[in-house]
Amino acid sequence: MIVGLIYVCGVSAIIFVFSIFYFVWREGAPFLYDCFDFKSFFTSPEWYPTSVGNKRYGILALLAGTGSVTIVAMLIAVPFSLGTAIFIAEFCGKKTKEGLKIVIELLAAIPSVVWGFIGLMVMNPIIVKLTGAAIGLNALNAGIIVGLMSVPIIVSIAEDSIRAVPDGYIEAAEALGATRWQTVYKVILPAAKNGLLAAILLGVGRAVGETMAVLMATGHSINVPFSAEFPYFHALDSVRTLTATIAAELGEAPRLDAGPGGIFPPEGRHYQVLFVIGIVLFAITFFINITADLIVKGIRNKQ
């Protein structure tokens, strides 16, 4: 009976995932069939889905926005999280450990919109003051916010993988007279590196998928914050991400059915292309998660 229930839960989880994907696919498909141009879709920064005369659907700027936020987020989250994970797993006492874990879990419990609010009201003026930028809502701001949001997942997976390093390795190093530090960076980190990589990837997945906080903190304006010349990356540019675009525009994009002859009215394309973006996001996070999964599996098989 209970087994049956669990079975139903498991199966329905799979069904849910597939039906969500099917739904996203179904809504986006007409666009893919009728007016999808692979090249301009991915390489044009011109996103004018509602232009009356000349609708253009280039998501390069949105990809760049998501990319820039993710880069900043990981630059902050990775060192911070790995440092924290190492500290929790290897260096601190039991009490500090409990305390830190609670704080980290609290970090995970803060709703996304509150993070966005922090970006808007706290980070924004700080960034303006420190950098002299005209506006503090940009890739840097959102990156910091999303970085902090990714910390809990990276820390928890990284800590698990550090603690999974067999004690025998650690004893071996210590018995040879290695200091705590030497043990950590010569034995523990190399032994845990796949798990750490998986942790980082899941953090990236988290950053790519974040919506609300990003919508509020990026400034939500279309920009490619990269350039061919120094400094290559302009973290102080306002950007717009894939997720935020969907969230912001879906409400105003009408879902129109096909007219006679199966031809969709042009005003309905906006709605459809947003779902195509959904498919892109789906593909990105799916790829990241699968990679992380394979890495973790790889570890298990080796041990």
């Binding site: 025998g168 018995a175 007279g177 034995v187 190399p190 032994a191």
Partner: peptide, 18 residues
Amino acid sequence: IELRKTVGMVFQRPNPMP
């Protein structure tokens, strides 16, 4: 550190480092 240099230890389960 010096002590453990002078006094080596071999464990019950062979534990080469990875």
